[in-house]
Design a protein around this nucleic acid. Structure first.
Length: 825
RNA sequence: GCCGGAGUGGCGGAACUGGCAGACGCACAGGACUUAAAAUCCUGGGGUCUGAAGAAGGCCGUGCCGGUUCGAGUCCGGCCUCCGGCACCA
């Protein structure tokens, strides 16, 4: 009988759909398990990365279901975004049509793969019933001062013709399209994620189920540094310049100060000085220099004196004020104090411009002569040249100096973050409109909640020319002010799609709620997500934003948890010929083709078997072939033994077991144990599958060497468990074979098997006998033999006697059930 | 530069807490079945040396050098290479 995968898969897909097999509702009597995979952008077709992502998730979902959990396993679409607009321009299809066609296609593909989603919970972020809540979120943020508009130098991608968040700029290039990002001075909407910097950082400690790598990346991204803000007055003007420093202990070593060229005080201060012309020229030059060159470490430090001096508040010292390329406006205060003796950058700058180098810390052991420095001394030591603080260890002095500054009102303790606020405006059409109205009389007015959603107009032309498409829709732009009723215009920017994906996991708990984004009660039952699976490329972007949203919603009182994802699994990429599959490289393997040729079960099995989930997976056509062969082997085996299952009754004692029977039962129960551990504790699906393969080999071996009629119950037990163990990995073939072997009900509704400890008890074990750490012989030993007995047995082996006869035994090490090591001299 | 991860056969990868290195799969080779092929099934296999061959056995072997230990892919110290993150962040 042939393995007709396409018939089988079609049959069960329809049956599961008809029976609503994966529909789940809250059940207070059952332990819940929320299994979530990152929802995809509906680009048109699934790629292998999706197949891998969703196969991993499905194994866990099905396994937990079999364990008796009430498993929430939803799927949806991150459906706003630029490709839809580009398609609209290129093919004159409306972004909405294009997107929904893609969604319909990809949904079918996911169903074909047999992923156990509860499709009744499907959401699409481009649907008004969803983006209504995206807009609602914006309003809640706005209400709390967490959404604000400001003018700033922002990242502009000329190719996408929109601004980007910092997180979407990678090494100066657009994360999406790879175009060099420019700086533009624009007024834009931001989310105040910096208000949450400290909590986002601290709560990383709670994420014990996250990979170290992702946590470190988030820590780096947030970039906390402790120090102080210190006020310097500018000589001969009423101005104060505040600097942020992490080394207040070096303040007596300040010999100059530097402002960012864009610092608002610069022109004001330089005005009227001899340096004014030079300063203006330098600022101009900096504007034309692109960000990457300017902030590259290789770039020579450059600056100019602005003709003014500042006063060091600690010692009254007069120090020159500079502007320089290496000082950035948007970190700290955009101004730094220059301590060349103890900071390498300052050292280089001071050397170049002939500024004095004053050491204020020397190493305790005088290993460095700080009065003849060839590079900055950045280590710890004893204070010198620092007035009342001389002689103190610098760490202690640091605290004393901050206290002194706070007392005198010249400075205060401060913590700075690298994290910037999240720029969420996008000058694009296909996104959730920002629900804001501009009124000449009332100013910035939020759209009242009961007027949501602000619907995207659909009668648009997509030419690819001009500015934002939305701005061209008169019917959209012209509106009335909700406050005064006068004429007003709508905000025409839409929101970053990462806003939409920052709460979808909460919406899944209550996806059809028309009164609220989700009910707290339902979120209380399902949240947090117990297992989240997705690509590591979202380590910062999506995962940081989602944590931020969760915390804000927690503070509002809507969300019951303050961290959304308990466990995170970041899966590796799918590679072909050593590099990521891409159209440009022409190395794309289409899931459709693989499913058509071998079936979904084979496709799933391969992506799970070829590598552990966290590692990159090298595609192999022959590897797929191997998995297909394995399923055929299972198919034949089970069909040949299908009657045996009727002889196996769960829980019934086995009688008259032969040695081979016992050995097979050992393999079966050991496999149950191994597969359970591999899925549950380690996500090592590759080894779980290899254990099942070994089990299949053992059953074949048994069948060939034993008269199967002898003990049908033993082989029946083996076959039954083979199917149960394989079910989460290959859901279709196991479901079909479950029926073929005469079982009632769906295999996916069965309980996950527990191993029988009795079956794992062995009477005899093989032990290795080593002499001086080298394996010299093996022996069978009763499992309960004492160390002394084992030692005597080992020493009496003829091979061993031969080896040790002229030498003296120094020591014998016995590791029960494993080995004996005889140490001789 | 700092931080994180990884280096194991021809290939993907196993080896759980220090205890038989190379499970399982692929590719390969030999055999069975077949008129033949495909499919299927069985067997073999890290390298190297000794032996006429075979049986058998010795030595070497988890990026490199050293250490701890009866015993190291695994632990410690020092490097090398690759991948990822951060980086003129004050």
């Amino acid at each position: 009988m042939e393995y007709r995968f396409s018939e089988i898969e079609k049959k069960w897909q329809e049956r599961w759909e008809k029976d609503k097999a994966f529909r789940r509702v809250e059940d207070p009597n059952k332990k819940k398990f929320y299994m979530l995979e990152m929802f995809p952008y509906p680009s048109g077709k699934l790629h292998m990365g999706h197949v891998r992502n969703y196969s991993i998730g499905d194994v866990i979902a099905r396994y937990r279901t079999m364990q008796g959990y009430n498993v929430l396993h939803p799927m949806g679409w991150d459906a706003f975004g630029l490709p839809a607009e580009n398609a609209a321009i290129a093919h004159q299809i409306h972004p909405s049509t294009w997107t929904w066609d893609n969604i319909n296609n990809m949904r079918e593909q996911l169903k074909g793969l047999g992923i156990s989603y509860d499709w009744e919970r499907e959401v699409a972020t481009c649907h008004p019933s969803y983006y209504r809540w995206t807009q609602w979120m914006f309003l809640q943020f706005f209400k709390r001062g967490l959404a604000y508009k400001k003018r700033a130098f922002v990242n502009w991608c000329p190719s996408c013709s929109t601004v980007l968040a910092n997180e979407q700029v990678v090494d100066g290039y657009c994360e999406r399209c790879g175009t060099l990002v420019a700086k533009k001075d624009l007024e834009q909407w931001f989310f105040k994620i910096t208000d949450y910097a400290d909590r986002l950082l601290k709560d990383i400690d709670k994420l014990t189920g996250w990979p170290e790598k992702v946590k470190v990346m988030q820590q780096n991204w947030i970039g906390r540094s402790e120090g102080a803000m210190v006020d310097f007055t500018v000589e001969g003007s009423g101005e104060t310049i505040t600097v942020f420093t992490t080394r207040p202990d070096t303040i007596y070593g300040v010999t100059y100060m530097v402002l960012a060229p864009e610092h608002p005080l610069v022109l004001k201060l330089a005005q009227g000085t001899e340096q004014e012309g030079e300063v203006r020229a330098f600022i101009d030059k900096m504007q034309y220099m692109n960000e990457i060159t300017r902030t590259s470490e290789e770039t020579e430090k450059e600056g100019v004196f602005i003709g003014r001096y500042a006063i060091n508040p600690m010692n009254g010292q007069r120090v020159p004020l500079y502007i320089a390329n290496y000082v950035l406006l948007d970190y700290g205060t955009g101004a730094v104090m220059g301590v060349p003796a103890h900071d390498q950058r300052d050292f280089k700058f001071a050397t170049k411009y002939g500024l004095p180098i004053v050491p204020v810390i020397k190493p305790e052991d005088d290993s460095v002569d700080v009065f003849a420095l060839r590079e900055a001394f950045e280590g710890q030591g004893i204070m010198i040249n620092s007035g009342p603080f001389d002689g103190l260890p610098n760490k202690e002095a640091m605290q004393k100096i901050i206290e002194y500054m706070e007392e005198k009102g010249i400075g205060k303790r401060h913590v700075s973050y690298r994290l910037r606020d999240w720029l969420i405006s996008r000058q694009r059409y296909w996104g959730a409109p920002i629900p804001i109205i501009y009124c000449d009389k009332c100013g910035i007015v939020p759209v009242p909640e009961d007027q949501l959603p602000v619907i995207l107009p659909t009668d648009m032309k997509f030419t690819g020319k001009g500015q934002s498409v939305l701005a061209e829709s008169k019917s959209f732009v012209h509106t009335t002010c909700p406050q005064c009723g006068g004429p007003a215009r709508r905000e025409t920017d839409t929101m970053d799609t990462f806003v939409c994906s920052s709460f979808y996991f909460l919406r899944f708990t209550d996806p059809r709620n028309a009164e609220a984004p989700f009910s707290r009660q339902k979120a209380e039952y399902w949240m947090p997500v117990d297992q989240y699976v997705g690509g590591v490329e979202h380590a910062i972007l999506h995962l940081l934003y989602a944590r931020f949203f969760t915390k804000v919603l927690y503070d509002i009182g809507l969300c019951p948890v303050d961290e959304p994802f308990t466990n995170l699994l970041t899966q590796g990429m799918v590679l072909k010929d050593g590099s990521k599959m891409s159209k440009s490289k022409g190395n794309v393997v289409s899931p459709e083709a693989i499913v058509a040729r071998y079936g979904a079960d084979t496709a799933r099995l391969f992506v799970l078997f070829a590598a552990p989930p966290e590692r990159d997976l090298e595609w192999s056509d022959q590897g797929v072939e191997g998995c297909y062969r394995f399923l055929n082997r299972v198919w034949r085996l089970v069909n040949e033994c299908k009657d045996a299952c009727k002889h196996y009754v769960k829980g019934e004692e086995f009688t008259n077991l032969s040695q081979q029977d016992k050995e097979l039962r050992y393999v079966v129960h050991n496999t149950i144990k191994r597969v359970t551990v591999d899925i549950e504790e380690r996500f090592n699906f590759n080894t779980a599958i290899s254990a099942i393969m070994e089990m299949v080999n053992a059953i074949y071996h048994y069948k060939e060497n034993v008269d199967v009629q002898q003990n049908m119950a033993v082989i029946g037990e083996a076959i039954t468990h083979l199917l149960l163990l394989l079910a989460p990995f290959a859901p279709y073939i196991t479901e079909e074979l479950w029926e073929v072997t005469g079982h009632e009900g769906s295999i996916h509704a069965q309980r996950w098997p527990a191993y029988d400890p009795q079956a794992l008890v062995q009477e005899e074990v093989e032990m290795v006998v080593q002499v001086n750490g080298k394996v010299r012989d093996r022996m069978m030993v009763p499992a309960d033999a004492t160390q002394q007995v084992i030692q005597d047995m080992a020493l009496s082996l003829s091979k061993i006697q031969e080896l040790i006869k002229d030498r003296s035994v120094v020591k014998v090490i016995v590791v029960p059930k494993k080995l004996v090591n005889i140490v001789v001299k």
